[in-house]
Every structure is written in structure tokens, then in C-alpha cells.
Amino acid sequence: MAQSIARPAMLAVAGLIAILPLSAVSCSAAQKALDCGNTAVKITGDINEVSNAYSNANNDAAAAGQSLQKLKNDLDQLGKNSKDTDVAQAITDLSTQVDKVQQAVNNKQVPDFKPLGDAASNLTKVCTG
């Protein structure tokens, strides 16, 4: 009788061993999607703050600078925590665009927000593609 129980148990263990690598891949993809989702939410909020602060820059120029610095800090942190090279590169590209907006603001020029939006859109594509 013990032999009849042992065989199904061994088959179940063998089945689990065969399934585990597949679930690890699924978890990896799910973790990337979750990380990207969290990144997108954080970055979208930061970009909205930059846009709103710049729109109101005549009223509070310091707010525009503070919101850009917050976005830079968040991008730095997200870049350090990203384990996916494509996501990390998209974050680096977005950081470059943030620096360009900061330079324009520092030079009292009207920043071009289109490249910033394009870089944010690219991050979304990397996360979903």
C-alpha cells in the first residue's frame, strides 16, 4: 500500500519540477509589468506636477524647480531599482529630457515638453511591449 501512495507522490513532485521553471518565467513577466505599472504611475504624477508648476511659474517659479527636482530624484531611484535593461534605458532617456527642460527653465526659456512626453511614452511602450 505504501508503494501505491509513493508512486503518485513522486509523479506529483516530478510534475511540480517541470512546472516551476514556467511559473518563474510568468512571475518574472508579472513582476516586470508590476514594476512598470508602479513606475508609470509615479512618473505620470511627477510629469503632471512639472507641467502644472510650469503653467503657474509666473505665480510660483520655485514650484517649477521643485517639481523638476522631484521628478529627477524619482527617476534616479527608479533607474537604480530597475533590473530590466530596456526599462533602465528608457528611464535614462527620460532623465535626459528632464535635464533639457531644467536647462530651459534655468535659462528663462520656454521648455519644449514634447520630447519629455515622447520619452515618457517610450517608457510606457517598453513596459507594455
Rank of each mutant, 00 (worst) to 15 (best):
M1E: 06
A2S: 09
A2L: 08
A2D: 14
Q3K: 07
Q3E: 14
I5A: 11
I5K: 12
A6F: 08
A6L: 11
R7G: 01
R7D: 09
M10L: 15
M10Y: 14
V13K: 03
G15H: 09
L16F: 13
L16Y: 14
I17F: 05
L20W: 07
L20M: 10
P21T: 02
P21E: 04
L22Y: 13
A24V: 09
V25C: 06
S26G: 06
C27L: 13
C27S: 15
S28R: 15
S28C: 14
S28E: 15
S28W: 15
S28K: 14
A29C: 03
K32T: 09
A33V: 08
L34I: 13
L34H: 13
L34W: 15
D35S: 10
D35G: 05
D35V: 10
G37H: 04
N38D: 11
N38I: 01
T39G: 05
A40G: 13
K42L: 15
K42V: 14
I43F: 08
T44G: 14
G45E: 08
N48D: 15
V50E: 00
V50C: 04
V50P: 04
S51Y: 13
S51A: 11
S51C: 11
S51I: 10
N52H: 14
N56A: 12
N56G: 05
A57F: 10
A57G: 04
N58E: 08
D60Y: 03
A61W: 13
A61I: 15
A62M: 12
Q66M: 15
Q66T: 15
S67N: 05
S67L: 02
S67F: 02
L68K: 01
Q69K: 11
Q69G: 06
Q69Y: 07
L71M: 04
L71D: 04
N73H: 12
N73V: 13
D74G: 04
D74E: 12
L75N: 06
L75F: 08
L75V: 10
Q77E: 14
Q77Y: 11
G79T: 08
N81V: 07
S82K: 01
D84C: 11
D86H: 11
D86K: 05
Q89L: 10
Q89V: 07
Q89I: 05
Q89A: 12
I91W: 06
T92C: 05
L94C: 01
L94A: 00
S95R: 06
Q97N: 03
V98L: 06
V98W: 02
D99P: 03
K100D: 08
K100V: 00
V101C: 04
Q102K: 13
Q102M: 10
Q103V: 13
Q103G: 14
Q103N: 15
N107R: 12
N107W: 07
K108D: 14
Q109S: 12
V110Q: 11
V110T: 13
F113S: 02
F113P: 00
F113G: 00
K114D: 04
P115C: 04
P115A: 03
L116H: 00
G117C: 04
G117R: 02
D118T: 12
A119W: 00
A120D: 05
S121G: 10
N122I: 05
N122E: 07
N122M: 06
L123M: 08
L123I: 09
T124H: 09
T124P: 06
K125P: 02
V126K: 08
V126Y: 03
C127L: 10
G129R: 01
G129A: 06
